[in-house]
Measured scan of single mutants.
Amino acid sequence: TRVETATETAWISLVTALHLVLGLSAVLGLLLLRKQFPAHYRRLRHALW
């Protein structure tokens, strides 16, 4: 049972790390898009919101 708990903890930390990386890359991508293609960014924002 101890090994299972350790594996679960590892999976949870892995998933958390993946979510963090995905969130950060999404934010960075949006910032880059905003900087380089303001028109595209505006259109995207209108489409999303």
Rank of each mutant, 00 (worst) to 15 (best):
A39E: 14
R45Y: 06
G29M: 05
V3G: 01
L30D: 00
L20H: 02
L18R: 03
L14A: 11
F37T: 04
A47N: 06
A6W: 00
H40L: 15
R42G: 07
L33R: 02
L22V: 09
L31F: 14
R34C: 15
L28G: 15
H19T: 08
Q36A: 13
L28S: 13
L48K: 04
R2G: 08
A6T: 13
G23T: 04
A17M: 04
H46E: 13
L31P: 01
L20R: 01
L44P: 04
A47K: 09
L32D: 02
L33V: 11
H46V: 12
S13L: 06
R45Q: 07
L22E: 00
P38K: 13
L22K: 02
L24M: 09
E4D: 04
L28K: 01
R42Y: 08
L20A: 14
L18F: 05
L32F: 14
L18H: 00
V21T: 06
R34G: 14
Y41H: 03
Q36H: 14
A10S: 07
L33N: 01
E8Q: 03
L20S: 03
S13F: 15
H40I: 15
L48H: 07
L18W: 02
L22R: 01
T9Q: 01
L24G: 05
E8G: 10
V21G: 11
L14G: 08
K35I: 10
A17R: 01
T16Q: 06
L31S: 08
L33Y: 14
G29F: 11
E8I: 04
A6E: 07
L44C: 05
A39M: 03
H46S: 12
H19C: 15
V21P: 00
P38T: 15
A6D: 03
L33M: 11
K35Y: 15
S25D: 00
V15I: 12
L22F: 08
L20Y: 04
Q36W: 14
G29W: 06
P38F: 14
R2D: 13
A47S: 08
T16R: 03
L28E: 00
Y41E: 04
A26D: 01
R42V: 08
T7Q: 12
L24P: 02
A17K: 02
W49D: 10
A17S: 04
L24A: 14
L33T: 10
T5Y: 00
T5I: 05
A10P: 04
A10I: 14
A26T: 03
R34T: 13
R43I: 06
R43E: 04
K35H: 09
L30F: 11
L28P: 04
R34L: 15
T9K: 11
A10Y: 10
L22A: 13
P38Y: 15
L44Y: 02
G29R: 00
T1M: 10
T1P: 02
T1K: 07
W11P: 06
E8S: 07
A39D: 11
L28V: 14
W49Y: 06
S13N: 05
H19N: 08
R45N: 05
W11Y: 11
A47H: 07
A6N: 10
L44F: 04
E8M: 00
V27Y: 07
L20F: 10
E4G: 02
V3S: 01
A47M: 11
V27G: 11
T1A: 09
V27R: 00
L48D: 00
H40P: 05
V15C: 04
L31R: 07
V27T: 05
S25A: 06
A6P: 02
L24Q: 00
E8P: 09
F37A: 14
E8V: 05
F37W: 13
P38D: 10
A47L: 10
L24R: 00
L18Q: 00
L33I: 09
P38L: 15
L44D: 10
H46T: 13
A10L: 09
A47Y: 13
L28W: 14
Y41P: 09
H19S: 15
T9V: 10
E4I: 03
T7K: 13
T1W: 03
R2A: 07
Q36I: 13
L32N: 02
W49R: 13
L44R: 03
A39P: 12
T5Q: 02
E4S: 07
T9A: 00
V3D: 02
